[in-house]
Design a protein around this nucleic acid. Sequence first.
DNA 1: CATTGAGTTCGATGATCATCTAACTGTCAT
DNA 2: ATGACAGTTAGATGATCATCGAACTCAATG
Lengths: 108, 108
Amino acid sequence: MKNTGAGRSTLTEKQFGLIAKALADPRRMQVLEVIAGERACACTKLREEFPVSKATISHHIKELVRAGLVEAHREGQFLSCEVRRDVLEAYTAELLRRAGGKLKTSVA
Amino acid sequence: MKNTGAGRSTLTEKQFGLIAKALADPRRMQVLEVIAGERACACTKLREEFPVSKATISHHIKELVRAGLVEAHREGQFLSCEVRRDVLEAYTAELLRRAGGKLKTSVA
DNA sequence: CATTGAGTTCGATGATCATCTAACTGTCAT
DNA sequence: ATGACAGTTAGATGATCATCGAACTCAATG
C-alpha cells in the first residue's frame, strides 16, 4: 500500500472498500477501539479484553493493517499497534463526500 | 427507530453497527451514492444503474433504511429515497470519537 | 374488472467470513 | 538448547449475507 508516510491520505477505491469492511465487524471495531485507547497495544492486552482466541485477534489485526487503519511493528516478541488517524479521517471525509448529498458547502 | 426529526442524531450502539454493516457492501454503497446524487430517487432509476434484480435493490434500500441512513416514502406507485445526512455525519463523528485516538481537542 | 408497471416478500443458493484448534515460527531467559 | 511465551498460519466449520427468480401486493389506467 501507499500512504506509508504521515501526510494526508487519499483513498483508493479498493482501500475505501477494505476500510468499510474492516469497520463492519463489531469485534474488529472493538479491537480498533482498544488500540486507539492505548498508545501502543499488544495482542496479549487484547486477548484479556475479549473472549476470543489469539488466532482471531491476529486475524483482526491483519485485516485492520490491510485496510491501512492500523500500523503494526514487532517490538521484540510483542506486536505494537497504532491507529492511523489520518487514514481514518480520510475515510470519513471520503464517505461524506460520496454520500453526503449535493450540498457541498456545509457551514452556511 | 428514533431520530425521526431533523436534529442532531445520537447513535445507539445497535444503529452504529447497522450503519457500519450497511456501508460495508460495495453495491449498497453505490446505491447510497446514487440516492445522494439525486434529490429523491426511485428504485427504477437504480435498476438502470446496476446490473442487479429489483429484489436486490429493494433489499439494499431496506437495509439502508433500517440503518437510518436513508429515509423512504411511497410516492404513488414509486418509492422516493433520500439520504439522512445528519445520521451519516453522526456516524463519522462517532467513528472518529471511538477510534480516533486519545487526542480529544473536541471543540471547547 | 383486467392489465400493466413498481416494489415487496419468499425460499434457495453460493460466497464470504469470523471463529476455532492445532501446528508452526520466532524471541527471551535459564 | 530447552522451555516458555507471543504471535502466525493452515484448514475446518458454522453463520451471515448478497443475489436471484418467482410469486405476491398495491396503484394507475383503459
